[in-house]
């Protein structure tokens, strides 16, 4: 799985951004992760803990918001979740790209994000404050 390499890119991007602001510490980080990225949230958290050791991110709080898959129909304008079709043989609900409204094929619009949404920085060590 690629959680470790994705998370190391996340940490790198945060360090770069924090550096621009002369941050002493990063106290909190907020990520949006889409369900369609198949990033295991536990693995992301674990990788994060490992990667932030010894950096100004150590001890920061990591918030992850999971984003649902969203589709968009060019044909009728439907926007929303996937339609699931019930499998008569296996009884496993199967997601489909068929539009629940008109039956045309939809496009995937959301659920693929892996975005750093915001972060909280501490500018000076003199005045330590908690993440929230």
């Amino acid at each position: 799985m690629h959680e470790f390499s994705v998370t190391s890119q996340i940490v790198e991007a945060i360090l770069k951004e924090a550096g621009k602001h002369n941050a002493k510490r990063v106290v909190a980080v907020h990520l949006d992760i889409g369900k369609l990225t198949f990033l295991g949230l536990e693995q992301v958290r674990f990788s994060y803990e490992v990667l932030v050791k010894g950096t100004i991110l150590e001890g920061s709080k990591l918030y992850i918001e999971e984003k649902d898959g969203i589709v968009n129909c060019r044909s009728c304008g439907y926007e929303g979740g996937f339609q699931y079709e019930d499998d008569p043989i296996y009884h496993i609900p199967t997601p489909t790209l068929r539009c629940p409204n008109c039956g045309e094929t939809v496009e995937i619009e959301g659920g693929r994000e892996c975005t750093i949404r915001d972060m909280k920085l501490l500018i000076s060590e003199d005045d330590k404050t908690d993440a929230d």
Binding site: E17, H21, V27, C114, T115, L121, I123, S124, D127
Partner: peptide, 15 residues
């Protein structure tokens, strides 16, 4: 200010 918590909105998409 010095010592202030500083909230930064970002939109950095890793993928």
């Amino acid at each position: 200010e010095k010592g202030e918590i500083f909230d930064i909105e970002l939109d950095v998409n890793i993928l």
